[in-house]
Write a protein that binds this DNA or RNA. Structure first.
Length: 703
DNA sequence: GCGCCGTCAATTTG
DNA sequence: CCAAATTGACGGCG
């Protein structure tokens, strides 16, 4: 499922942007109307791409004949820069170094070779990153311990006897019996990849997909014999199948995990190799030093259960483990290990936590990088018993971590303290939540003029489109209710969980509509209610304007709709659209790279191909050139964090579905939101654009 | 000395 | 508030 959209792709810091007149924007009266036209902030000529190969001739693309150009990988006419693969090898890295999730610089994989995604031999599913790049901080430390059960590395993958779990002994619990390793030919979904970041993301996405599915099953079973803890169950399934990254403990950074990454379950920390204990707050290992072996602490989770003090962002007072309200803590296990890490000056990974305000019971874990234990002491806790205390100090020169959260909190508490604000609400009151327009990069005063609309403008009046079938559910639709016609339309299950997350990608989703008898609180009315997240349109360093969120976003969260005007599909005979920088269009038939709900095989369910199904390509495009919403600012990336999903809610014309964006993975606050525009080769006079996404998987071109 | 168990600590989650 | 749940450390035994 590829699609294309052109966008501002010219490097803005190339000097040309200084032509920007800055006198155009006038302050506007803020009377709120349903549809509102923004005053011109910018001459509309601005933002038009003049696309050229760096240092060379303008990019010229030879159009293959025919509208149905077969495949991007087997072109019959080679353009000057041929295939995306070739382009990516020839193209020098342009623009900024890739940014980590929170916008801070991130280490670039120096291996510039083209990456081929191959499918793993089954079982060798996730490639644990080997220790060749092992960060050693303690002199002659090795990250292997005699006492530590040392998991194997990729090269020597031990294959367990099928069905022999760790507890196959006399007292095997019955539940374990079902958790058999998936046999070879049953599971070939997870691509083998050299990129540790990709390994980590695949593990996390699979975990959450399984978790959501287990929760969905649980919710429809009316609590009877359900999966009480879908998170643990999903974790066990992945563990049993060795579907994890970075097996084996290590001191220091974990490949593929970046500072600022967020997690929603302890199990996730475990699966990516960040923090092994599924519950304990202190992880430690035995390492070999020049003067012998020693057991040192390697990571801590500051979960708030203890009397940890959150003061300075670079400082953490961590309480030891053990003891309780009527027992002294002892200098053993984690406490002892922290003491040793103090003396040996070992790097400690710190995972801090925050309350999830979108889900008050929840907690978010944030990887905050490496700390060192500076001092330790014993003090009396609140109940009068001894508690060990460790003062950890964050190492300098690391990307911003938890400080981003504190900064955002400050902005929320005191909006006046936010710098770089151009407009408090680019939607001028139309959206549920104001969308701030900010520029902290240069002095450009805003994107070119457009009309902010929250709905798609159809070619035909809505009333002429076929209405949806309606359900007769009282108050709200519930899973497991066999009489709900809307659940039936979605294949039997409601597509969203009770807390409002998409469970899995589908060819199309039928939400409840105006004629359904359920209320607006029905969970099957998720996307029709508009945005629920605090977004921000911001100036990127090199990709024009972009979209990001001040709130953390969990995988499966509804982001927004792609609104604009429906137009005929951009093709050979649509000249106008070629100049349109804001087109949403499906480019190809399917997209193997995005099987968001992959992994049903792990639960013994048949695999489904949701990416295209029997539905043909979308017959239309949406132009957000003249009118649109925040979605028009979402830039392209070859490693996106957002995908689109077809949804119906106000009519049943499957030829005109709504395009709704959802989060592919957990997205930390302030990370730019991106989706994959696809690569539309051979359609009309259309020219793909040079990609600046910086992903190791970058195709080099998009659009 | 090695590997296989069984037990235990830890504490998250609903 | 409490119970159920899981991994890995640890220690004993063969």
């Amino acid at each position: 499922m590829e699609f294309r959209k052109a966008h501002i792709g010219v490097a803005m810091d190339s000097g040309q942007s200084n032509h920007t007149p800055n006198s155009t924007r006038e302050s506007e009266p803020l009377d709120v109307q349903p549809l509102r036209t923004l005053a011109p902030m910018f001459p509309s000529s601005y933002g038009v791409n003049t696309f050229s190969v760096p240092g060379g001739a303008p990019f010229i693309y030879v159009t293959p004949s025919g509208p149905n150009f077969p495949s991007p990988t087997a072109p019959t006419h080679l353009p000057p820069f041929a295939t995306p693969q070739q382009a990516s090898t020839m193209r020098p890295r342009v623009g900024q170094p890739p940014a980590s999730a929170n916008g801070a610089p991130q280490s670039v994989n120096s291996n510039g070779s083209v990456r081929h995604t191959t499918y793993a031999t089954p079982l060798a599913t996730v490639i644990p990153v080997d220790d060749d790049s092992e960060p050693i901080t303690g002199g002659h430390t090795t990250a292997s311990g005699r006492q530590t059960k040392q998991p194997m590395h990729s090269s020597s993958h031990k294959i367990r006897k099928s069905g022999t779990g760790s507890s196959a002994g006399s007292k095997a619990k019955p539940s374990k019996k079902r958790l058999q390793r998936i046999r070879n030919n049953d599971f070939a979904l997870v691509p083998s990849c050299q990129d540790p970041r990709e390994s980590v993301e695949i593990v996390l996405m699979t975990f959450d997909a399984l978790r959501r599915r287990l929760l969905q099953q649980d919710e429809s079973k009316e609590g009877k014999d359900g999966n009480r803890r879908p998170d643990l169950k999903a974790g066990t399934v992945l563990m049993t199948n060795d579907l994890r990254a970075n097996m084996g403990k290590r001191i220091g950074a974990v490949p593929g995990v970046e500072i600022g990454d967020i997690f929603y379950f302890r199990m996730e920390l475990c699966l990516v190799g960040l923090h092994a204990p599924s519950m304990g707050g202190i992880d430690y290992m035995t390492s070999t030093f020049e003067n012998g072996d020693d057991t040192v602490a390697i990571s801590v989770v500051s979960a708030g259960g203890y009397e940890n003090e959150e003061g300075d962002v670079d400082e953490l007072i961590y309480s030891g483990q053990g003891g309780n309200t009527n027992v002294d803590q002892k200098l053993e296990r984690g406490n002892l290990a922290l003491e040793r890490s103090l003396h040996r000056s070992i790097d400690i990974r710190v995972i801090r936590s925050a309350k999830d305000y979108t889900c008050p019971t929840g907690k978010i874990y944030i990887y905050d990088g490496l700390y060192k234990v500076q001092e330790s002491w014993v003090e009396k806790g609140k109940t009068g018993f001894n508690v060990f205390k460790y003062k950890l100090l964050r190492k300098p020169d690391q990307p911003v971590g938890i400080a981003t959260w504190k900064k955002i909190q400050k902005w929320k508490d005191n909006p006046g303290s936010r710098g770089g604000i151009i407009l408090r609400d680019i939607s001028l009151g139309i959206e549920n939540i104001p969308v701030c327009l900010v520029n902290e990069v240069d002095n450009e005063k805003g994107p070119s003029h457009f009309e902010y609309v929250t709905k798609v403008k159809y070619l035909k009046p809505l009333s002429s489109l076929k209405p949806l079938e309606c359900c007769k559910c009282l108050t709200v639709c519930l899973p497991g209710d066999g009489s709900c016609t809307c659940a039936h339309a979605n294949g039997g299950n409601l597509p969203y969980s009770s807390s409002g997350f998409l469970v899995s990608r589908k060819p199309i989703i039928y939400e409840c509509g105006a004629t359904c008898s359920c209320s607006i609180n029905c969970r099957n009315r998720l996307t029709q209610k508009g945005i629920t997240i605090q977004f921000e349109v911001f100036k990127t360093p090199n990709k024009g304007w972009g979209l990001r969120s001040l709130d953390p976003i969990r995988a499966g969260t509804f982001i927004c709709e792609y609104t604009g005007e429906l137009v005929e599909k951009v093709g050979l005979d649509n000249e106008d659209a070629e100049d349109d920088d804001y087109i949403f269009q499906e480019a190809g038939a399917d997209d193997k790279a995005l099987k968001w709900n992959y992994g049903p095989e792990l639960l013994g369910e048949p695999s489904v191909d949701s990416s295209n199904g029997s539905r043909g390509p979308l017959p239309f495009s949406i132009s957000a050139n003249k009118m649109g919403n925040i979605s028009r600012f979402i830039n392209h990336s070859c490693s996106p964090n957002v995908f689109w999903q077809q949804v119906l809610h106000d009519h049943s014309d499957e030829g005109n579905p709504h395009i709704m964006f959802f989060a592919i993975k957990h997205i930390p606050p302030m990370a730019e939101l991106t989706y994959d525009y696809g690569l539309n080769i051979g359609v009309g006079s259309h020219m793909p654009k040079q990609c600046l996404c910086g992903s190791p998987k970058c195709r080099g071109l998009f659009g």
